[in-house]
Design a protein around this nucleic acid. Sequence first.
DNA 1: ACGGTTACTACACGATCGTATAATTTAAGG
DNA 2: CCTTAAATTATACGATCGTGTAGTAACCGT
Lengths: 214, 214
Amino acid sequence: MARIEADLEDLSTRARIRDAALRHFGEHGFGGASIRGIAEAAGVSSGLVRHHFGSKLALREACDDYLIKTVRRINDEARTDTMLADVNPVAAAQAALGPYQRYLARALTEGWAAPLFDEMARLSEEWLEEVDKARPDPPFASRKARATVATAMSLAVPILHQHISRGLGVDLASPEGAHLLAMTLLDIHSHPMVTPEAAAAMREGLEKLRDKSL
Amino acid sequence: MARIEADLEDLSTRARIRDAALRHFGEHGFGGASIRGIAEAAGVSSGLVRHHFGSKLALREACDDYLIKTVRRINDEARTDTMLADVNPVAAAQAALGPYQRYLARALTEGWAAPLFDEMARLSEEWLEEVDKARPDPPFASRKARATVATAMSLAVPILHQHISRGLGVDLASPEGAHLLAMTLLDIHSHPMVTPEAAAAMREGLEKLRDKSL
DNA sequence: ACGGTTACTACACGATCGTATAATTTAAGG
DNA sequence: CCTTAAATTATACGATCGTGTAGTAACCGT
């Protein structure tokens, strides 16, 4: 019983522990993080962590559940609140994901959180459906394939956050960094790296290579 | 003294340990991997690992050094051997990086290996210099910024290898997977996600947003 | 053949890990 | 007020961690 808040989600001790876990898992990875460290960060005893979540693995799964719920919420909000999202979706996503970026990166690279990626790819696919309407030529690959790869490429930004920051010379979390990144992404996404002619040639070469090897 | 092989690098026990470490660090992360596990995988005692590398951290640094050397070698080879690299650079890089992909992913996401990323970004910048010659309009962002972000986006493929494989329905390591990925990347890179007009509008919006916030 | 450097193993130490259990405090309901 | 359940802590256990030390086996120049 108890917990009248139901799906309002808790602002309680349990939530504090989960937030600390998200931060710790993000910073040290699953193997590197420790229950005791999480407990200390949350200001509780290590036994209480176990009492609320059962085990380290179950705690991670609770983090995953919370994060996937957050991603969905962010996506919904981005649809209604068009203003900021249209102008600087990068900054918007970054602000919304906020302290969970590092956890997201860990989750994806350490192998768990497959549903999380799939959900994001699904959202990308929906978005691609709109974009495809304005496209004259037939795509080389299925929409799902393009959505999957595009999702992965987008995720490179939060995953390699610090490396990009170092390369740009400013922290991506700062307003200047977000702006510079948005400009750079805009330039990249509005200028094909490969010309249509070169693409056709490469495509032909690829097909030949494939026929030969089969 | 000893070690006549010099920079030929060793095929010896030391190399076996390092390879096992690359695999273990890649699979379990730095925190999750254990000296004993690495030693067992290499078929030696755990003491020998320490004897050759001193500490866990030094072992990781040795892995980094080896990997950065490998990346440089691959890049050089790709310049001379144009055949495969031009047709399917994705498959080429994948085949060359081979078993080190997971380590690379860990190294980049766990925060170490900054020199590795910077080296790759530098190589990207050199490559961009060639591409820029055929470009009519001035870029929105500096070459280094574009090279950095493009490098990050390219790295998303090995980093999110398993998620992309799941999304495509085939293992990226298989010939079919490599082909499908190459096709998808070709489509993405030859079709701007944003039209020039939309890009100009977004850019203007971005600048305004920036002026307002400063 | 032999002395010395190096490769390699066995083992022990202290720390820390995840987990388990029992005790204690807090909160709530009748 | 008293009972009962939940929240929270304290403490302990066994395993495993990285590291240190001492000892053995192999190799090599002379």
